[in-house]
Every structure is written in structure tokens, then in C-alpha cells.
Amino acid sequence: PGQFFALVVVLACAVFLTLVLWVRWPSVPSAWVTVAVFFIVRGLTLRYNWRTRPLVVED
């Protein structure tokens, strides 16, 4: 359990690939949008303390 760091990185990669491959944006503007999305979502996870749950709950 912890904060959503790896999930935010995967989301950022998906945003970049979507912008470059499907929307056909140039890579530099796509990278800047991806960086902005990453920092916004990461900031939200820190601000609201969103956390993952453990896979196995021990009694």
C-alpha cells in the first residue's frame, strides 16, 4: 500500500502515446501536455492523500 505513483506514471505514458499515435500531435507538444497532466494528477494524489489498498489483508 502507498500512494498512486506508479499508476500516475502509467497514466502519463498512456496520455503521451494517445496524443502522438492517435491524435497525431507532434512529440514536443505532446510531451509538454503529458508533463502537465502528470504534475496535476500527482499533485492531486498528494493533496488528497489518495492511497492504494493492500492486496492481502492480514488479520
Rank of each mutant, 00 (worst) to 15 (best):
A12K: 08
A12G: 14
A12C: 11
C13N: 12
C13H: 08
C13R: 04
C13Y: 10
A14N: 10
V15Y: 02
V15F: 02
V15T: 14
V15N: 04
F16L: 09
F16A: 01
L17C: 07
L17N: 10
L17W: 10
L17P: 00
L17Q: 09
L17D: 09
T18Q: 05
T18S: 09
T18W: 11
L19F: 09
L19W: 06
V20E: 05
V20D: 07
V20M: 03
V20N: 07
L21N: 07
L21Q: 07
W22V: 04
W22P: 05
W22N: 13
V23R: 02
V23T: 13
R24F: 06
R24D: 12
R24T: 08
R24Q: 14
R24S: 10
R24I: 03
R24C: 07
R24M: 08
R24H: 12
W25E: 07
W25R: 10
P26A: 13
P26Q: 13
P26R: 12
P26H: 12
S27M: 09
S27K: 09
S27D: 10
V28A: 06
V28D: 03
V28G: 00
S30M: 01
A31P: 00
A31C: 08
A31W: 06
A31H: 02
W32G: 08
W32K: 05
V33E: 01
T34I: 08
V35C: 14
V35D: 06
V35Q: 09
V35G: 09
A36I: 15
A36G: 15
V37G: 05
V37H: 13
V37R: 11
F38Y: 15
F38W: 15
F38S: 06
F39P: 00
F39L: 15
F39V: 14
I40H: 10
I40A: 12
I40D: 03
I40E: 06
I40N: 08
V41I: 12
V41K: 03
V41F: 12
R42V: 04
G43K: 05
G43M: 06
G43Q: 04
L44K: 02
L44D: 04
L44P: 01
L44S: 04
T45S: 03
T45D: 07
L46M: 04
L46I: 08
R47P: 00
R47N: 07
